[in-house]
Amino acid sequence: MSGLVIEGLWKEYGQQVVLENIHLTIAPRAFVALVGPSGCGKTTFLRMMLGQERPTRGTILIDGVPLPPEPGPDRGVVTQRYSVFPHLTVLQNVMLGPELRASRLSGRVWGAARRGLADRASALLAEVGLAGAEHKFPARLSGGMQQRLALAQALMMRPRLLLLDEPFGALDPGIKVEIHALMRRLWHEHEMTVIMVTHDMREAFSLATRVIAFDRRRNRPEELERYGASVTNDISIWPPRVAGQQTLYDADIPPGRDDPTLTGIATGTTRAAQGTRA
């Protein structure tokens, strides 16, 4: 399982301090939502998790092992745009990962292995609600369907850590509710830790087990350069959501009826657990 330990993490671009002194421990199978104002370094943080960028100082440990300095198959990623390959059909997009893993020379598999893989990919596509769209190209899918595809593509690799960078930011509200239900289910069913960057507070609180807010502690104009953002709020959702177990709180609420008071289900409370930390 993927326990994540982040110690004394700093990120600077030249003179500009972006993130300062981040300490976090993320439990295996947690669903962490990162929130905060624009430009506070959420995405930078996610990129460092991914291995796309290196921290200036500090360490990131996955299961006690330092994070490799480049992206790898143990960490999946879904970004807001450009997350699927436009030159491959839906099915080919989903099959690509295992194909690349199996065949290091040609990046393609044939025969029985291919058929088996296609079956597995189709099953996963059906799970994310893309059955019937296997042979379309991504350009012909709507935004919501493209993000479903991107999720399926990432999940084919069975990542231990799934990183989401505003994956649903560009979707309209009705589609969002559906894809949230899907995301919740995928998190329950797949063995992974999820870290999601989002602007949408409601999304953060309705999906995550823990919401972490980044912000700058000092915001005076003359201090902007030298002080970066750090963790200002770290909230554990109550009642706790546990991967693989439905809680009353997470009962799937039909689209358009997402106000919990209307369904008559106890809503529970949200309380600040650790409060602010250094």
Partner: peptide
């Protein structure tokens, strides 16, 4: 887009692939 290359890396692609 850089995102595509990164995505391919998370799908276990080598530079050649």
């Amino acid at each position: 887009p850089r995102e595509q290359i990164v995505k391919a890396e998370t799908l276990s692609a080598s530079t050649w692939l």
